[in-house]
Amino acid sequence: MSANTTAMVDAQEVHKYFHRNEVLRGISMQIQKGEVVVIIGPSGSGKTTFLRCINFLEKINKGRIYIDGELIGFRDAGGRLVPDSEKNIARMRSEIGMVFQRFNLFPHMTALQNIMEAPMQVKGVPREQAETRARALLAKVGLADKADAYPARLSGGQQQRVAIARALAMDPKIMLFDEATSALDPELVGEVLKVMRQLALEGMTMAVVTHEMSFARDVADRVIFMDGGVIVEQGKPADIFSNPREERTRSFLRKVLEPDAS
C-alpha cells in the first residue's frame, strides 16, 4: 500500500473500534485537492469518528490514512506501522483545520487572541504579523468589530465564525467540519453556512459532515452516504439526491427531506 500522491486525503481500509464495538468497518475514500466532500448519514453511523481519524484525534486500529501523501499517526518501518512521534503528529495536524459542533473556542482569550494563539505558539509567527492576519480573518468572517470580545459575549453563530477563522489562521491544506451548524439556533445557521460556501468557492479542500441537505446539494462536489460504519454510496449530489441506487440511502433521504411523511 502506498499513498495516492495527488489526493489530499487518501483513506485505505480504515477500521476503528471503541472497545469491542467496530464503529468504522473498512472505509476507503479519497478527497482530491480543492474538492468539497459532504458526508451524510444517520446518527451513530461513524461520521464524526471518521473525521476525527483524519486528523488522528482518534487512533485508527487498522488501515492507513495519508494526508497530502504523508501517512498520519504512524511511520512505515519496512511495512510495519509504528506510532509516530507526538511532535510529528502535531505538525501534521497544524495543516488540518477542524471546526467542531461545540465551537471549542478558548474562553479565556478574546476572539483576536483565539486566532493569534496557534500561529504564534506553534509556528512562531511574530505578534504583529499574527495580529494583522487575525484581523483580516475576522473581517473575512464578518466579525471585524468583535476582535476584543470574549467568546462568552458572542452568539453561537459568531463563535463558530471565530472558530473557522482560528482554523484558517494556520493556513490549513484541508478543513474538516463536524456538524458546524447543529448547535446553532436556526436563525444563526445561515451566517455560518455563508462563510463555508465562500471557503468552498475559494478552492479550499473540505470534508463536511452536516445535516444541511441544501448545503450538500449546492456546494458539494461529491456526497458520501455512510451507514453502520461503511460508505454505502457516493456520487455527485444531483445523483445521490435524485436517484440514489441503494435502498438504505433512499430511506435515509426520505426521512431527512420529508420528515413529516414518515
Partner: peptide, 14 residues
C-alpha cells in the same frame, strides 16, 4: 472541557 485540549491539538499544539 476535554474539547479545549482537542481544539488545541487540532491547531497543532502538543
Amino acid at each position: 472541557d476535554p474539547g479545549q485540549m482537542e481544539a488545541a491539538k487540532t491547531l497543532g499544539m502538543t
